[in-house]
Computed example of a mutant assay.
Amino acid sequence: MVQQVTKGIKISVETHFEGMFYKEYRIQFAFGYKIIIENQSNDAVQLESRFWEIKDALNETQTVCGEGVIGKQPVLQPGEIHSYQSGCVLTGPFGAMKGHYNMLNFSNSKTFIVNIPSFKLCAPYALN
């Protein structure tokens, strides 16, 4: 598990390999990840949007951005935790992801960025 704290918001990430499949005559590698967002600050915050940078084994980069996470824009009071699971598909057996969340602090009405630490995606057999 990788973790990072930015401005009192702790992000923890766990990953797992889900398997391979063929799509349009190409092998694809599916990965899942679980994100835990913990508000360790003294202020209520809301996750407004996300930005992801996804790199595959060939160092090709894909970016993904949008509102919220899995259709939600959670509000976290001090001490609260929000977790969700999602996934991605790569064209190779390993890659990496990193990104950030745009958050709103309700105490001062300012937005701020919370970094999502870089984490690896790796099929178990590709480690050797």
Rank of each mutant, 00 (worst) to 15 (best):
Q4Y: 15
Q4G: 09
Q4R: 07
V5T: 15
K10V: 13
I11H: 11
S12H: 08
V13L: 12
V13K: 06
E14I: 14
T15H: 06
T15M: 07
H16C: 11
H16N: 13
F17Q: 02
E18R: 12
G19T: 14
M20Y: 13
M20K: 15
M20P: 00
F21E: 01
Y22S: 03
K23Y: 12
E24W: 07
Y25S: 11
Y25M: 08
I27C: 07
Q28R: 14
F29Q: 00
A30S: 12
F31E: 02
F31L: 04
F31A: 04
F31P: 02
G32Q: 04
K34I: 05
I35Q: 08
E38L: 13
E38T: 12
Q40V: 11
S41H: 10
N42G: 08
A44K: 13
A44Q: 13
V45H: 06
Q46C: 06
E48P: 00
R50F: 05
R50E: 09
F51W: 04
K55Q: 10
K55P: 00
E60C: 03
Q62S: 13
Q62M: 10
T63Q: 04
V64M: 05
G66C: 05
G66S: 04
E67C: 01
G68S: 02
V69C: 02
V69I: 14
G71N: 08
G71F: 06
K72N: 05
K72Y: 02
K72Q: 08
K72G: 00
Q73K: 13
Q73S: 12
P74D: 01
P74V: 04
L76E: 05
G79L: 06
E80T: 09
E80L: 07
E80M: 11
Y84R: 02
Q85Y: 04
C88T: 15
V89R: 03
L90M: 13
G92Q: 10
P93K: 10
F94V: 04
A96E: 15
A96S: 15
K98T: 07
G99C: 01
G99W: 00
N102K: 02
L104I: 03
N105H: 07
N105C: 11
N105G: 06
S107R: 08
S107E: 12
S109P: 01
S109W: 05
K110C: 08
F112C: 01
I113A: 01
I113C: 03
V114S: 05
S118H: 02
K120S: 11
K120Y: 10
K120G: 05
K120F: 10
A123R: 13
A123L: 14
P124W: 07
Y125H: 10
A126M: 09
L127R: 10
L127I: 11
N128H: 04
N128A: 04
